[in-house]
């Protein structure tokens, strides 16, 4: 419900998407469905019995103490970690060991990492065009035009010919966002995108994310930026000790948390 959040965006939203986004959240379809998901590292239970449904175009902010399994959870949504029990369905595709399903899911889901993980040996432009060219077989001209358009969107078109190491952290992270968007994903995952950044660069990355949310992108963000969460999130999920403790709209989480653990954690960080 981008419109209701009260900021104007100049970005065009495709017609079919606009149609879906026009509906209230409850009437949209589920794009991510997790049922009783478990994950262990050896004997250690990292994620236990998490069930969560995310609507199309919804923004979910995931927070919790470190080691609470929130990163592991979103990494399972594009199979960087394998879940061991339960089921995950992305946009109607069940996550199984079928390679074709996995490839389809990876194309549906973009990801932005805490440490950016840009490819240091190719230019910013190359970083963005690599996957569209090699995976989607997009002609070079088209891929580059798309890349420039995305760089424009994240505000750094002039950096296209540079190498990642020549950019500041905030710029690198914005390139990483552009790179993920170049595959035109339905869902974007953010794994603590601002944690490795200097304070003055956090804003530029959050702005890019805000703008993205306004276009109706489905987003799952692991972040501790509570201001961002309050402003942009449709729902917030609190993780502790591998379990999904509480899930609800920001209003409820901030003003009337149902669980003591949520309240305690928020008291500590706010």
């Amino acid at each position: 419900m981008a419109e209701t959040k009260g900021f104007q965006s100049a970005v065009d939203i495709p017609a079919e998407k606009a149609e879906i986004l026009a509906r209230p959240l409850e009437e949209r379809d589920d794009i991510v469905v997790c049922e009783n998901v478990h994950k262990w590292f050896g004997d250690f239970c990292a994620v236990r019995d998490v069930s969560m449904r995310v609507k199309r175009g919804e923004v979910v902010v995931i927070f919790g103490p470190s080691g609470s399994g929130k990163s592991t959870f979103i990494r399972m949504i594009n199979r960087l970690e394998e879940h061991q029990q339960g089921s995950i369905v992305i946009d109607g595709i069940e996550m199984t060991n079928d390679v074709r399903n996995l490839d389809a899911i990876r194309r549906e889901v973009g990801m932005v990492f805490q440490q950016f993980n840009l490819f240091p040996h190719i230019t910013v432009l190359g970083n963005i065009t690599l996957a569209p060219q090699r995976v989607r077989h997009m002609p070079r001209g088209e891929a580059e035009a798309l890349a420039m358009q995305l760089l424009e969107r994240v505000g750094i078109p002039e950096q296209a010919q540079k190498y990642p190491a020549e950019l500041s952290g905030g710029q690198q992270q914005r390139v990483a966002i552009a790179r993920a968007l170049a595959m035109q994903p339905q869902i974007m995952l953010f794994d603590e995108p601002t944690s490795a950044l200097d304070p003055e660069m956090i804003k530029e990355v959050l702005d890019a994310m805000r703008e993205l949310a306004a276009t109706g992108m489905t987003m799952l963000c692991v972040t501790h930026e509570m201001g961002f969460a309050r402003e942009v999130a449709d729902r917030m999920a609190f993780f502790d000790e591998g379990a999904l403790v509480e899930l609800g709209p920001p209003d409820q989480i901030f003003n009337d948390p149902q669980e003591d653990r949520t309240k305690m954690f928020l008291d500590q960080i706010l």
Binding site: D43, C45, R261
Partner: peptide
């Protein structure tokens, strides 16, 4: 306050 349940055991085929 929700009771903290003991951690479930991993599937038998993944440990030991």
């Amino acid at each position: 306050m929700t009771a903290r349940v003991a951690a479930p055991l991993p599937p038998a085929t993944t440990i030991g």
